[in-house]
Design a protein around this nucleic acid. Structure first.
Lengths: 194, 194
DNA sequence: GTCTATAAAAGGATAGAC
DNA sequence: GTCTATCCTTTTATAGAC
């Protein structure tokens, strides 16, 4: 049980509140109350609300990139198809848990207007990481003229499941993931049928 | 050129601002300024900010339901497969234009905490409308044991393309739609391959 | 680093004249 | 219906004691 710095506590509480209520919907009072300090004390750690917010988002972004790469590496000795399936599952699991998926999604889709550019930059890196990883898996299993199509469909699958996290219970969501995956992989195998 | 009531002007401006900046991120001053009146004048038309917001969302929800049903009806004399494809395309098109998709998405995923229940009710109706329409198309083309799987995959396709509206240019987005659709429909045709 | 006190601005909302 | 004036609350942020 190692003790946590106040800075980390602040980031932790801020993550949860920003995720649930957004940037504008979260006040520094809320955060201070959650941490158990008074509002002005926050300014000993961050120089503004925006500064704190960017700190939180930066951590979210870095953590997610690391998760994605590490997971792909761990799966890399399996068949390409199994890699894709497990990556879909673990990615969904990761984003479903805690406030991670919530804030990730919220900030990618609806960044506060004033920070749009800074946030876009962070997530551009994330996008590139994902592309590189997925592409390298697809290249192991597909002819050249096919991989872009499958890549697009796979990303749509990831995005669709991402979206549905917020609509359905974990059980319902898992069922939908299985069904969507099954149809996807059938489509991959059945080349030039049409 | 028929003249517009101030009420409608307010709703119109509020729609755009709420869509871009969210409920908490939009102030009544912003709306009043956009309309060209003073802030207190808003209260002659709506009794509170929440009231105005719910009015806007209600219209969005009703409009979308009507669009979905009307589009499906218009397509109903085509083959089931063509119906699915055109519905995907037109739905994507509809949500991509104006601020419609933006506010629709924002409110489904991140309603303001205080209005969560009211909004959930509105969109429950939307979900049922979509389910009914899609199910009736799928039943024309699939055996009983298959339709649920295809239904889940089709919804994932809709949701994935919905999500991607915000990441990509219309051209890039259309390319991705084509590729995702192609793989989807291949999967539908290639039954029990695995 | 944390506190109290306080500033300065902006938020939603109401009263009352026109 | 729209305005000015005003109220009350909350917001971000700073100053300065401990």
């Amino acid at each position: 049980m190692k003790k946590e710095s106040t800075q980390d506590r602040i980031k932790e509480v801020a993550l949860i509140l920003f995720a649930r209520n957004g940037f504008e919907g979260t006040s520094l009072s809320d955060i201070a109350k959650g941490v158990g300090i008074k509002k002005p004390s926050l300014y000993a750690h961050y120089k503004s609300k925006e500064d704190l917010f960017l700190g939180v988002i930066h951590k979210v972004s870095v953590d997610y990139n690391a998760f994605f790469v590490k997971t792909a590496e761990r799966l890399s000795n399996q068949s390409p198809e199994k890699q894709l399936y497990d990556l879909l599952r673990e990615n969904t699991e990761y984003l479903r848990n805690d406030e991670m998926g919530l804030i990730f999604k919220r900030m990618m889709l609806f960044p506060p207007e004033s920070l749009r550019k800074e946030i876009a930059q962070m997530f551009e890196k994330t996008e590139n990481v994902m592309k590189r990883v997925i592409k390298s898996i697809l290249e192991q299993m597909l002819p050249n003229e096919e991989w872009e199509r499958v890549f697009d469909a796979y990303l749509c699958l990831l995005d669709g499941m991402f979206e549905q996290i917020f609509y359905y219970s974990p059980e319902e969501h898992n069922k939908r993931l299985e069904n969507s995956w099954t149809l996807f992989i059938r489509g991959v195998h059945s080349k030039e049928e049409k």
